[in-house]
Design a protein around this nucleic acid. Structure first.
Lengths: 228, 228
DNA sequence: ACTTATGCTTGACTTAAGTCAAGGCGCAAC
DNA sequence: GTTGCGCCTTGACTTAAGTCAAGCATAAGT
């Protein structure tokens, strides 16, 4: 059946026996969210966790004054809302569909039952939570120990890596969103793009960023160099 | 045997059959670290994870210029270095004993073997990683969305909560360490203590902090109020 | 007791980044 | 088309927090 095949393709469920893929398909609930729709809000009761089938979702928190910090932007086959399954009653952050998005929802208790009978699923989940922990730790590091130019440089390197070391990068999120992801505001981000251009580290065209001095960007990201 | 009893008392191992406590005791390695000693450094190969038997450990990262961000300060029965067991080859941060500290080291592969045979251990570990994830998310929130006074206020509330709502708090870490934990520097922290005193929110004596206006501190922590 | 650290505070100054306000560009809708 | 609306940029200004430097107090070592 089609759903079972989709589930079999999800990295989190890698290496599970067919039988388990069928069990997962049996408890999963398909949902669709429109562009801009809130999937859950910080503080909502945690009903389960999600896996993206198609589309794009951002996980974020808002400050009292309305400033937004994006934690992750996730795409196909990535899970979110997972921490609430195993600890805590409420979602610690909000999730919003950035485009039309299809997800699978795995209800909390049924998923816990399943996992407690499947050590390899448990190990996959442990690996996933661990790598999520690393991502968050590096976000803390960036926010606390680097200035905005360093964070942007690190993000450009991440993009470049993700595209097999490409030197021409396409921004897949708006610069406003990127500012939120880097823990700053659009005005500051814009000025820093500008300065990086003047320093001949990058060249920006409307929708692309051309990396001119990869080594220089590495140094900026590690705090071994500053913009003029 | 004594070690088995100690292990049985560790929350992470709650609810496991006696047999498993014995298995854990069999693979655990006891180690002792002196005050100030580095347990592992960021980038070191991950040999396993630790549980504190006695003492105190800080988990931190350093910036290129030497600024420190403390992620956690951990005490008896708390695990650390756990993310590396399930994902990644190297420790993402450093660990240092703040006082003479005894730990148990669980070597990576043996622990993974054990966990893959024990769903309830796996679930305990999942719950622990999830709550660690929440802690980190709230650190990100604090760093990115709150100013230093708000972070300090949140920390004071955390201390007060931990002591059953006490209004007289004893600082169990130095103010320098507290500054690192809040993502700032001692000078700034000192000035903010000062301002909170002037606003009659707290009264500080050399080693204690007296909470005068709990409600005011809550508002400060939520960004609904600012210091004069 | 004297000296040396160490931790903490204070003051004067600098700076990164945020706020506020205005304007331009590009795209979609009417 | 042209109108309008996000998205992005720019300039002038403010501000939170960091840097540098000095001073003091407590605790520790000889």
């Amino acid at each position: 059946m089609e759903l079972t095949n989709k589930i079999a393709a999800i990295p989190l469920f890698n290496g599970l026996p067919l039988k388990q893929h069928e069990n997962l398909a049996a408890i999963a609930v398909q949902k669709t969210f429109k562009r801009g729709q809130i999937i859950f809000s910080e503080g909502d009761e945690g009903i389960g966790f999600y896996i993206i089938l198609s589309g794009r979702v951002k996980i974020f928190k808002l400050s009292a004054e309305g400033k937004e910090q994006i934690f992750h932007i996730m795409e196909s086959e990535e899970p979110f809302g997972e921490a609430t399954v195993f600890a805590g009653e409420h979602y610690p952050a909000s999730a919003q569909a950035l485009v039309e998005t299809k997800v699978l929802l795995f209800p909390r208790q049924t998923f816990v039952d399943l996992i407690s009978k499947n050590p390899s699923l448990a190990l996959n989940m442990l690996a996933f939570l661990s790598s999520r922990l690393r991502t968050l730790a590096s976000l803390v590091e960036d926010l606390s120990l680097k200035e905005v130019p360093g964070r942007l440089a690190a993000y450009l390197l991440y993009l470049s890596d993700r595209n097999k070391g490409a030197t021409i990068l396409e921004l897949d999120i708006s610069k406003n969103q990127l500012a939120s992801l880097l823990g700053t505001i659009p005005e500051t981000l814009s000025r820093i793009f500008n300065r990086m251009g003047k320093d001949k580290l990058i060249k920006t065209t409307p929708r692309h960023i051309h990396i001119l001095d990869h080594q220089g960007i590495v140094q900026l990201a590690c705090g071994r160099k500053r913009l003029a």
